[in-house]
Amino acid sequence: MNANPLLKGSLQTIILKLLEDNSQMYGYEITQRVKEVSEGSIVLTEGALYPALHKLEADGFLETFTQVVDNRVRKYYRLTDAGGKEVTSKLSEAQAFIDQLQTLLNLKPATK
């Protein structure tokens, strides 16, 4: 993922939201969708995606199934019921954080 630590901390929220909107996705598809939605400004790199996906799977928020595509196994991820609830909670957290940040930053007028 690109170097912005704020974005790094939001990776799980991004994945959960994408899966809520797309029902099922595979690893490469997620990286491309993030790039597309952010118009290239966010690129999932440095192996951040797969550990995050597997952690969400281990926590019971995602489940997987596989399909054979072009003679190779493709692993798809989809939200579990717990994952569906987690999306709402993560989005509320993200929204609250953005609101707090906005309030804090608005206290100090920009200096030139």
Partner: peptide
């Protein structure tokens, strides 16, 4: 996409622990 060949092994270890 994976941060280099060495990172593949790290990703595998993390994936294994999660599985």
């Amino acid at each position: 996409d994976f941060g280099g060949a060495k990172n593949l092994v790290k990703i595998e270890t993390e994936s294994k622990n999660a599985m």
